[in-house]
């Protein structure tokens, strides 16, 4: 009875999910809509909320792409008037730019700290507070124990956390639900038009608990993601202007 077996396996998988820190009760439909086909990589076809996501970047340019990609996700999490907390050491983020990703920069509280230990404590403390939508922490090194603590904190409060690791010394195992690597691709531009065009990113989902890792090439155009196809004309429709 192969059908029966498949049924049992899927049932067991669903029971495993909460044990791995993924809660299926939380769903954010607009976010899943915005992510497009990427959502099929996640368990139950939903971006895991109430979990900690890890982003790796190797250069300052990729750091910018990672920040922008996170900003797009965060913009869906902090709709209405929720607020987010951004914790870092030497923060280079330019707040006015967040408006390009549909975030009101005045609804983000920036906390600048000196030591890694303090940053970790502040991230953990913020993740425990369920009145905020999300916490973004910039810290290069995080060990398994620390990431486990963060995961335990979010399981209690259901806040979504993002950890940006710029130039990490070693890529150790962490308790985070996903590990991403975002890098920049040449901008997309239709035909022989001048200028830089739409920013394009290579989104590499390296690890995901109970999901299927994958690689996608996307462009950020007109306030939404577009998956790149082989012909640029198809991926980027020219904006129609009247008059």
């Amino acid at each position: 009875m192969p059908a029966d077996k498949a049924h049992i396996i899927s049932k067991l998988q669903k029971e495993i999910l909460p044990l791995q820190g993924i809660r299926h009760a939380q769903k954010n439909i607009p976010l899943n809509m915005a992510l497009g086909e990427m959502k099929y990589a996640f368990p139950e076809d939903h971006f895991p909320l109430g979990a900690v996501h890890e982003f790796i970047c190797d250069s300052t340019g990729d750091h910018a792409c990672t920040t922008a990609f996170i900003s797009v996700i965060v913009s869906h999490l902090m709709n209405k008037n929720n607020i987010a907390i951004w914790i870092g050491q030497r923060r280079t983020l330019f707040p006015p730019a967040l408006k390009f990703y549909n975030i009101d920069p005045d609804r983000i509280i920036f906390i600048d700290l000196k030591k890694d230990k303090e940053i970790l404590w502040a991230i953990e403390e913020s993740l425990k507070c369920n009145s905020i939508a999300t916490v973004i922490g910039e810290i290069p090194e995080i060990n398994f124990t620390a990431s486990r603590r963060l995961q335990l904190a979010v399981e209690e409060s259901k806040v979504t956390g993002f950890i940006i690791r710029k130039n990490p010394r070693n890529l150790n195992t962490t308790a985070c639900v996903t590990r991403w690597k975002i890098s920049s691709l040449p901008g997309l531009i239709a035909g022989d038009m001048p200028g830089v065009g739409f920013p394009c990113w290579n989104v590499n989902l390296q690890k995901v608990r109970n999901g299927k890792p994958g690689v996608w090439q996307i462009a950020w155009a007109w306030g939404r993601f577009r998956y790149l196809t082989s012909t640029p004309e198809q991926s980027i429709p020219l904006q129609k202007k009247t008059g």
């Binding site: 005045d106 509280i109 920036f110 906390i111 600048d112 700290l113």
Partner: peptide, 10 residues
Amino acid sequence: KLCNSVIRRF
């Protein structure tokens, strides 16, 4: 707890 923290909004 962290006396040298800088907390602000923009």
